[in-house]
Design a protein around this nucleic acid. Structure first.
Length: 257
DNA sequence: GTTGAGCGTT
C-alpha cells in the first residue's frame, strides 16, 4: 500500500526512493509527507509495517520525482529530529522487488535477461538480511512469539517454505498426530473461554490523522443484539436438529473445528 | 504502554 492509492505503488518508473531510518514507531506517512513535500515533489510515502500487528517498523520510504529534490531532502532532513527521534534520510539501496536501484533512482520494472553469458553475481544478500532480521526479532521476542520470526522469514523469502510435511514414517506421524490431536482437544476447551479479540486497527493513512484521532474515542461496534425477542439465548437445541436424527452426519466426527 | 538494526506495499 502506498500513501496515495491502495493499489500499490503508483509509478516507480521515474521516481527516486529515499530510505528514512530511525523514525519513531508512531510516526506515520502523514507526518513524513509534509516534511518531505516541502523540499520537492513527493510521489509516494510508504511505511512498511508489520503484518501481524500493523505497527510501523521504524523506517519509511519517500519517493521523489526528481533526484535533486531528493538530494536536497536528504541534506535537509537527514538528522532532523522528527517525533522525538533524529531520522536518517538516504537513498534507497534496493527497490520494492528487492532489485538494486541505480543512483537512487528506481530501476525500471522491466527485467530482461539481457546477456545470459554473463552470469549475474550471486551475492549472498539474503544472508545479511536474515542476520539483520534475526537480530531485530530478538528484541521483539521478549513479548512476542518465535513464530513471528518464522512468519517474517517466510514472507521475505520468495520460495523458501517448502518443507512443511516432514517425510517421516507413517506410523510415527500418526502417533504424533494422535497426541497432538489429543492435546489440542483438551486445549480447545480452555480456549473457548478466551475468545480472540478483534483488533480494529484503523489505517493511519491519509484518510485519518493520528493526532486528530487521539481525542476521538475508538468507537467499537458492539455485538449486535442477536436476540430478536430480547430474551435470553434459547438453548441451541431448539435450533439445532436432534443428533439422534443425524443420518447424514457421521456420529464419529463429533470433534470438529 | 514496551523495542531500535535496517531496504518496501493491493
Amino acid at each position: 500500500m502506498s500513501h496515495f492509492g491502495r493499489t500499490g505503488p503508483p509509478d516507480i518508473r521515474d521516481t527516486f526512493s529515499l530510505l528514512v531510518l530511525n523514525i519513531s514507531f508512531r510516526t506515520t506517512a502523514d507526518d513524513l509527507f509534509p516534511l518531505f513535500e516541502r523540499y520537492g515533489k513527493v510521489v509516494d510515502v510508504f511505511i512498511p509495517r508489520d503484518r501481524r500487528t500493523g505497527d510501523s517498523r521504524g523506517f519509511a520510504f519517500v519517493r521523489y520525482k526528481y533526484a535533486d529534490e531528493a538530494q536536497k531532502a536528504i541534506d535537509r532532513l537527514d538528522g532532523k529530529n522528527v517525533d522525538g527521534r533524529n531520522i536518517m534520510v538516504q537513498f534507497a539501496k534496493y527497490g520494492p522487488n528487492a532489485e538494486p536501484i541505480r543512483k537512487g533512482r528506481v530501476k525500471e520494472v522491466v527485467e530482461k535477461p539481457r546477456d545470459r553469458s554473463r552470469s549475474r553475481s550471486p551475492r549472498p544478500r539474503h544472508r545479511d538480511r536474515e542476520h539483520r532480521r534475526r537480530s531485530r526479532s530478538r528484541s521483539r521476542e521478549r513479548h512476542g512469539r518465535d513464530r513471528d520470526r518464522d512468519y517474517r522469514r517466510q514472507s521475505r523469502s520468495r520460495s523458501r517454505s517448502r518443507s512443511r510435511s516432514p517425510s517421516s514414517s507413517p506410523d510415527h506421524k500418526s502417533h504424533r498426530r494422535a497426541r497432538d490431536d489429543d492435546k489440542r482437544r483438551s486445549r480447545s476447551k480452555s480456549r473457548s473461554k478466551s475468545r480472540s479479540r478483534s483488533r480494529s486497527r484503523s489505517h493511519s493513512y491519509h484518510s485519518a490523522s493520528p493526532r486528530n484521532c487521539k481525542s476521538s474515542p475508538p468507537r467499537r461496534s458492539p455485538t449486535p443484539e442477536k436476540h430478536t425477542n430480547g430474551k435470553d439465548f434459547p438453548p441451541s437445541r431448539s435450533v439445532s436438529p436432534s443428533p439422534k436424527h443425524a443420518g447424514s452426519r457421521s456420529p464419529g466426527s463429533e470433534s470438529k473445528e
